[in-house]
Amino acid sequence: MNERDFCYWLNGFVELTQGQTPNPAQWKSIQEHLREVFRKVTPPVQTGPLPSTPDPMAGKSLDDIFREYRTTVAPLDWSKMVVTC
């Protein structure tokens, strides 16, 4: 739930209770929704250089790459293809 969803939820809650003061169980529900909305979790950030991975295609010409691709990849069997629209 984001801040906007919470506002819609709270608006519906107020409409259903017709402006009456919430009871303790209702306050607890409001507080739980507030905690959910304002819980911000930042993913871990990597610092420093990224580990490098050798590129097997580095230094090859496009012709060599294409030639290698054509010999290593099986051709498509169009008779087994099913197209659904």
Rank of each mutant, 00 (worst) to 15 (best):
Q20R: 15
E3Y: 03
E36T: 04
S79P: 01
P51M: 02
R70T: 13
V45E: 13
D77W: 04
Q31C: 01
K60G: 09
D64I: 04
D63A: 14
V83E: 03
A25K: 07
L10T: 02
V14R: 11
W78E: 06
D63L: 12
L62N: 15
I65F: 11
G48E: 08
E3D: 06
S79T: 11
P54H: 00
R39L: 13
V14E: 14
M57P: 01
P43I: 00
S61L: 04
E15L: 10
E15T: 02
T71C: 13
E15R: 13
P24Y: 00
N2I: 12
R35F: 01
T47I: 09
P43N: 01
P44L: 14
W9A: 04
K80A: 12
D63K: 14
D55L: 05
V41E: 13
R39G: 05
D55K: 04
G19R: 09
T72M: 15
T71D: 11
M81R: 08
Q46I: 08
E36K: 07
P24I: 00
G19S: 10
P43S: 00
D55M: 09
D63W: 14
W9R: 03
W78S: 07
E36Y: 03
M81Q: 06
D64P: 02
V82Y: 03
L10N: 02
E68M: 09
K60I: 06
S29G: 05
R39P: 02
Q20D: 14
P22A: 10
A74L: 11
V73W: 12
R4T: 13
G19T: 05
L62Q: 13
D55R: 11
F13V: 07
P49E: 13
G12M: 04
T53D: 01
D63S: 11
K40G: 01
E3K: 12
N11H: 12
T53E: 04
R67T: 15
V45M: 03
S29H: 05
L76G: 00
V83L: 09
S61E: 10
P22W: 10
D55A: 04
W9P: 02
G19N: 09
D63F: 14
Q46P: 00
F6T: 01
S79F: 06
T17M: 06
V41P: 00
P56D: 08
V45L: 08
R35E: 05
W27F: 12
Q46H: 12
T84S: 11
F38Q: 04
D5S: 10
A58Q: 10
G48V: 07
P56Q: 04
E36S: 02
Q26G: 08
N2R: 10
M81T: 07
E3R: 09
D55T: 07
T71S: 15
Q26N: 09
T17H: 08
V73R: 10
V37H: 00
I65Q: 14
V14A: 10
P24N: 00
K80Y: 01
K80L: 07
F6K: 07
Q26Y: 05
R4N: 14
P44N: 09
P54V: 01
T17S: 07
A25W: 01
G59T: 08
L50Y: 11
W9M: 05
P44M: 07
I30G: 01
F66R: 11
P49A: 11
F38M: 02
L34D: 03
V82I: 14
I30F: 02
V83K: 12
Q26T: 03
V83C: 09
V37Q: 06
L76N: 09
G19Y: 06
F66N: 05
